[in-house]
């Protein structure tokens, strides 16, 4: 399966989406990321039972906080898929890139020196 997905996405591997904390999402934006998507396993299929539910809640918290500070909550999104769903991953990756492109760059980069 040779699928292509947008090259402007940087993948950060974690052992489980439950490892992703709100601070990781915030730091990404602080460093200049334009968007973040957390990709977890299908709900109900978490190897650690509740990891992806935790991730969903944290994504929700990050959305609210980013909205409050004017960066924009829509820049964060959670997706669920299984490891066998390569084509779906490629689709989601394209989707988040499109969403973020429509929103424009992370607004804090306008003022940040040496922005990424």
């Amino acid at each position: 399966m040779r699928l292509s997905y947008p090259t402007n996405i940087r993948i950060i591997r974690v052992p489980c989406s439950g490892k992703v904390d709100i601070i990781h999402i915030l730091r990404a934006f602080e460093k200049g990321a334009d968007g973040v998507c957390v990709v977890g396993c299908i709900e109900g299929d978490c190897h650690f039972k509740t990891g992806n539910f935790r991730a969903r809640k944290r994504v929700e918290q990050a959305r609210k906080l980013l909205e409050s500070v004017g960066v924009g909550g829509e820049r964060v999104k959670m997706y669920n898929l299984s490891s066998g769903e390569g084509p779906l991953f490629a689709r989601y990756a394209t989707e988040i890139v499109d969403i973020v492109k429509a929103l424009g760059p992370n607004p804090i980069k306008r003022f940040k020196k040496n922005a990424a």
Binding site: I22, I23, L26, R27, F29, E30, L65, L66, S68, V69, G70, V71, P107, I108, R110, F111, K112, K113
Partner: peptide, 18 residues
């Protein structure tokens, strides 16, 4: 503390203030 500090930093940057 980390979460609040990070969010505040972004808030201020967005206002053009470091």
């Amino acid at each position: 503390v980390g979460v609040l500090a990070s969010a505040l930093r972004m808030y201020f940057l967005n206002q053009g203030k470091e």
